[in-house]
Amino acid sequence: MRLRLLVRTVSEMCITVGAVIVLFVVYVLFWTGVRADTSMDHEISGLQDQWAGRPLSTATATATPTASPAATAPQQPAYRDGTAFAVMYIPRLGRDWHKPVLQGTGTGTLKKGLGHYAATARLGATGNFAVAGHRRTYGDPFKDFPLLRKGDTVVLTDGTTWYTYEIDRGPYKTVPSDIGVIDPVPVKSGFTAAGRYLTLTTCEPEWGHSHRLIAWGHLAATQPVEDGMPDSLSG
């Protein structure tokens, strides 16, 4: 009788643990995506509300990528940690693919969108605008990262200007300690002179963390939001 109770209790424990593991898989694969989609939509609509309330006259768009950044940079407010400041569009990852970009790359921040490396350049500024995003879980923003090719456009807007970056170097696999990839002039990117660069990072392999995938681009064009969406998005 004692043995039967023991066997039954152990069996029930095993079934319980199994059920919890299945639930955890559901959480990781499905629920994090639901939560992330909700908070990303929330971030984007918050940004749009904020931009809608801003008078157009404050649009101090840099006319050309070659113009001096010193003229525009100081008068813009600093990005606040954990707060969305831009929306990124990558047509290659899907016509509707757009995600908020938040300041910082903390775990909590990356649950709500893409994260801008705080130590790197501002959007559109000289230097390297570096952004990290989840490959899997939390909405899978960079699931199709390996599809990025030279010439693909990455479009960002901060509410006043559309910034169109062009990918120069497709997915480059490296190790997590290779912090040179987000330098102002990224090492191994093929860029040699200072410029307005973009770096995207995510994890590799898809479900692992042993490596990182990197994509580099440069600022190809800017236009004020009053002029409408860039051709690469509307076309």
């Binding site: 955890f24 990781v28 989840h134 899997r136 960079f142 987000i182 990072t201 990182r212």
Partner: peptide, 21 residues
């Protein structure tokens, strides 16, 4: 589980490591 336990356990898995620094 979904509200407290899993959010605590999930960062222990490798899917969060997407940055280089």
């Amino acid at each position: 589980l979904f509200q407290y336990v899993f959010p605590w356990a999930e960062p222990l898995l490798p899917f969060n490591d997407v940055t280089v620094n």
